[in-house]
Nucleic acid binder design. Structure first.
Lengths: 159, 159
DNA sequence: GTCGATGCAAAGAATTTGCAGGACC
DNA sequence: GGTCCTGCAAATTCTTTGCATCGAC
């Protein structure tokens, strides 16, 4: 068993996030729609990050087709509301995941150089170090992102 | 004066990096050429990150035009040799900067949400936290990247 | 002279946008 | 009924690639 699974990263419950997303959109004056609900529902169910195309394809496979443009528009909207975090790694398409605007379930990612797998992790020590650092700088530090790269456990075994 | 300038981030000396890059390319079996030397020279002189287009434009302005394709090819080559670090932030073009393969002068970046300025910083506490974290995970952690976002000092003043 | 390096133009990809039609309130 | 939401296709933008030519060794 990998350490990643032994120390599972707490992720928002599908229900809590769905509710937060729905409420935030409504409060921001947006209409509800079948397509947006489909995107939100998919994001809520995911454990890992997805690209816009993967989201569109997955929804089509479920019989709930949502055009790629709408997926992008929805992700942008949710991103502005801090309900979706966008990750851009290298040249590949950006990856998206559900997030809580409150910062709950905040975490970072490990990317395997070999298989490309993206694994979330969290670490209190890391957060403390960043908080201490932020206090020292005279920037108004808001968000932060940490990406670790290397070989994942599965790839190490496979060798 | 901003904290960034008070605590200047050590950057590789232009000479040391130029020499490292030249030697690494030669050792890897690549030929020397005027265009590559021009790209290397520009990167060596920069204090901040540049996009491929900025590099091409800057060289053209100096009377040393290098085609954008060659810039990309050179950056890719240097990236493989760990002499260039590539930063992808958002949808904008990737930014590149000189780096030492040894990890000397390793640092991270702060990005201003308002003006887009990218400022380097380094922090021993942050590096320690990452090292401790890496030891706990059962990934083979290689590189890591930290990006802080927020408002830079200049933008705060301007408000 | 051989083979890598370069430029140009074309190809590819990801993302955004214009616009006509459909859905929500 | 007025707007917002969607899909499609076109446009944009960044990056990569094919190919003929030039330059390094």
């Amino acid at each position: 068993m990998s350490q990643a699974s032994r120390h599972a990263v707490p992720s928002p419950s599908a229900e809590a996030w769905t509710e937060a997303a729905t409420a935030a959109l409504r409060d921001a004056g947006h209409r509800s729609s079948k397509r947006r609900e489909a995107v939100i529902s998919l994001l809520a169910r995911q454990r890992c990050v997805l690209s816009a195309r993967e989201i569109s394809d997955a929804l089509r496979a479920e019989g709930n087709p949502v055009g790629i443009a709408t997926v992008y528009r929805t992700l942008e909207l949710l991103g502005e509301l801090r309900l979706v975090q966008r990750l851009q790694m290298g040249t590949e398409p950006a990856l998206y995941e559900a997030a809580m605007p409150s910062g709950e379930h905040h975490h970072h990612h490990f990317v395997c150089d070999r298989c490309g797998a993206v694994t979330p992790f969290d670490d209190a020590g890391l957060e403390r170090a960043i908080a201490r650092l932020a206090a020292k700088l005279d920037y108004a530090v808001g968000e932060h992102e940490v990406v670790l790269r290397g070989g994942c456990a599965d790839c190490a075994e496979a060798r």
